[in-house]
């Protein structure tokens, strides 16, 4: 088969480590949200003390998840045999992990949004 040269994101190695990038970012953002709120409340005494910091942290988290999801989206569309992708071949392994990463990225994206949303509505430390 005559293939185009691989693009950069197709040359990236896919592994269980890349699989857990989106949920790890979600966990990190979750921790960040709690630290941000509790440190503002305990040390400064008011709630939305550094909203810019929080917005920036959320945007960074969403961006990492988006990039990770985009790479996974591209990788799981690489040419291979027809579904289901469950054989022990290199391409099936790639497509399986990429598809899982994509789904996790979707979940993590929504989860980060959900844990960031209350900040827009709550107004004090009670």
């Amino acid at each position: 088969m005559n293939r185009d040269p691989l693009k950069w994101h197709e040359r990236l190695r896919v592994s269980l480590w890349t699989l857990i990038v989106p949920p790890a970012v979600w966990a990190g953002h979750f921790l960040f949200s709690y630290l941000w709120a509790s440190i503002s409340c305990a040390k400064v005494g008011s709630f939305a003390r550094f909203p810019t910091l929080f917005v920036a942290g959320t945007v960074v988290a969403l961006a990492i998840i988006l990039v990770s999801g985009w790479i996974a989206w591209k990788q799981q569309r690489m040419t291979g045999d027809p579904p289901p992708h469950e054989s022990g071949t290199q391409i099936d392994r790639l497509r399986f992990i990429a598809k899982s990463t994509l789904l996790l990225a979707g979940l993590s994206f929504v989860a980060v949004l959900f844990s960031a949303l209350p900040v827009a509505f709550l107004s004090d430390c009670r």
């Binding site: 949004l113 959900f114 949303l117 827009a120």
Partner: peptide, 14 residues
């Protein structure tokens, strides 16, 4: 779920 969250969150405002 997003719609429910957006609808319920303002009610939680102190």
């Amino acid at each position: 779920l997003t719609a429910l969250l957006l609808w319920a969150l303002p009610a939680m405002r102190p």
